[in-house]
Design a protein around this nucleic acid. Structure first.
Length: 543
RNA sequence: GCCCUCGUAGCUCAGUCGGAUAGAGCGACCGCCUCCUAAGCGGUAGGCCACAGGUUCGAUUCCUGUCGAGGGCGCCA
């Protein structure tokens, strides 16, 4: 049982005894930054002072006295501080209980939640046009979306990863025309594609094939390959064309008409999107009879709602303006717009040696995602993309991530895992047994380094839940860096085995190390980063 | 003009439902390998949390405004 549940129950019950009935539904409990303020602290006296008309400090004192009459488990001291904080000092046993929880849950169940209770979530991400390779900027949305999907899964959702393919429209035609032109020895058309890949692919293209169909397959295969190199695998690839063939476009139009959500003006068909967050109405069918990009998108989201309870889209910052119109369209179709969540990732600027590299398909000046993976490796790429909040712009410096491996946080974290494996292997080699945890005296774990590890482990479930609800995988990255730092400190100061290390202490530390291993494996998996069992640095001049 | 995100140490960034003395990495400087991998550990230096108001017991956090950076406001996709 989590120590917080024990404390909260005691606090609420004590409040009732003090005449505060019912007690507040939310009793917040936090770990103070300053150790002098105890192991856990509650501000409940401050929070409920005004509602009850009592002096916060006086209420806190009364609460502390009531609690002292029958102290909750693990609690060794209770005092009142500042304006009315009630601070608890606990025996280390609460942390030893955490280790038992971690180990008995294991990497499959520790920090897993069931808040999703099986609800289905469809995460749609990347969804780049099939007109060329993915570039470095796509990498952020790709790693973010996949990690988000992993978080939803760990929090009890049924997750589908989907890639929407814009396989029709003017961009596709321009792409095909560009391929055909270059293959024929001339220049791409006005507004066409000029990337070096166009020349490369045009050279590969066999005689007599349809450039559009061939280029489509070529681009898609290329995109899929680099995603898989990052361990990103989509459950489905949804074709825009298929909605024309299936009649889904016509259906959504008649749905919108029956909801009186569209009207004709100037020969065009408009969506009444204003008034639902959008600032103006939007054209669905142009006066020349062609669709805008919006109509198939609306049809696509309607289709997704038939396949999932909740939709999560990952869009780049350059698409944030479309959120309101899409939610407006979903509202018109009778869906709850809050079930369509759009996560916006801010732009990635790419640098090489401090110099900015432009990302533009049109000019052909781009750095492919495949180059990023080649240069820095899949693990470093993923970790780096997931290092920051997606609300912040990111300057991804290839030279920095690739060449300065010593200061790369991904290696720091992975090295912690490798060290654990090394300890375990060494223990096995030395014949040091690790009896079942309930036969090991965990109270021997009292070193500050050991306790810091246990505190960090205790935080992982909260971190995962929060990262999921806030759609912020970078919180897991932050946690795993902190966990690794705590482990390296422990590794330096506390030997698991060797001369002068008591056998019982060795066994307790082996379980501690196992707990840390579980935490690292869980977090790295959420990030899609591997947990290597050994890492050997390449020495200068050595192969 | 309107909308979104950001502004925290020299640099890159974290910072939980508002909480007590604001953190990490890198860079700088000083130390630590008879020892489970030194891709490691410890220490020092470095802050008007952009600015101004407001809300309250309390604001880096919430609200308003100003300034600055990036992105978006098409019968383009």
């Amino acid at each position: 049982m989590d120590v917080r549940d024990i404390l909260i129950e005691s606090v609420r019950s004590a409040l009732v005894d003090l005449g505060i009935d019912p007690p507040p539904a939310e009793v917040s409990l936090e770990r103070p930054a300053n150790p002098e303020h105890g192991d856990w602290s509650t501000n409940v006296a401050l929070a409920s002072a005004s509602a009850t008309g009592r002096n916060p400090r006086e209420l806190g004192t009364a609460l502390a006295e009531a609690l002292e009459a029958s102290p909750p488990a693990h609690v060794t001291a209770i005092d009142v501080a500042g304006p009315g904080f009630v601070n608890f000092r606990l025996a280390d046993s609460w942390l030893h209980d955490v280790l038992v929880d971690v180990v008995s849950a294991g990497s499959d169940a520790w920090a897993a939640h069931d808040v999703g209770s099986g609800r289905s979530v469809m995460v749609e991400f990347v969804s780049a046009n099939p007109t060329g390779p993915l570039h470095a900027g796509h990498g952020r949305g790709a790693c973010y979306g996949d990690s988000l999907a992993r978080l939803y899964q760990r929090c009890g959702h049924e997750v589908t990863r989907e890639f929407y393919i814009n396989d029709r429209g003017t961009q596709m035609q321009l792409f095909a025309d560009s391929l055909a032109a270059v293959a024929a020895g001339s220049e791409p058309p006005e507004g066409g594609y000029h990337g070096h890949y166009i020349r490369e692919w045009a050279g590969e293209m066999p005689e007599g094939v349809d450039p559009l169909e061939w280029g489509y397959e070529r681009a898609l295969a290329d995109q899929r390959r680099v995603l898989e190199s990052l361990d990103i695998h989509f459950d489905s690839w949804f074709s825009e064309r298929s909605m024309i063939e299936s009649g889904a476009i016509d259906e959504v139009m008649s749905d919108l008409r029956s909801q009186n959500a569209v009207y004709e003006d100037d020969g065009a068909t408009w969506l009444r999107s204003s008034g639902h967050g959008d600032d103006k109405d939007r054209v669905l069918v142009k006066s020349d009879g062609q669709f805008t990009y919006l109509l198939p998108d609306v049809a696509y989201h309607r289709d997704k709602f038939q396949r999932a309870d909740r939709l999560v889209n990952v869009w780049g910052a350059d698409h944030h303006g479309y959120v309101a119109r899409m939610q407006s369209a979903m509202h018109a179709l009778g869906h709850d717009p809050s079930e369509l969540q759009v996560a916006i990732t801010q732009m990635v600027s790419l640098r090489r040696g401090g110099e900015e590299v432009r990302l533009s398909k049109r000019t052909g000046e781009m750095v492919e995602l495949a180059e990023v993976v080649d240069e820095v490796g899949a693990d470093a790429a993923r970790f780096t993309y997931l290092l920051l909040s997606v609300d912040s712009q990111q300057a991804f410096d290839l030279d920095l991530v690739a060449s300065q491996v010593n200061e790369n946080p991904v290696f720091y974290v992975q090295y912690a895992h490798a060290r654990i494996h090394s300890i375990v292997a060494r223990a096995a080699h030395a014949g040091i047994e690790r009896p079942p945890i309930d036969r090991v005296d965990l109270s021997l774990l009292g070193h500050q380094r050991e306790l810091a590890l246990l505190r960090a482990l205790h935080e992982l479930p909260d971190t995962v839940l929060r990262a999921c609800s806030e759609q912020a995988p970078h919180q897991v990255t932050t946690w795993v860096r902190d966990m690794a730092a705590a482990f390296h400190g422990f590794y330096h100061d506390c030997r698991v085995m060797g001369d002068g290390i008591d056998k019982g202490l060795s066994q307790a530390r082996l379980w501690l190390v196992e707990g840390v291993r579980i935490g690292l494996v869980v977090a790295l998996d959420l990030l899609g980063v591997s947990a290597p069992e050994e890492m050997w640095r390449e020495e200068e001049g050595e192969a």
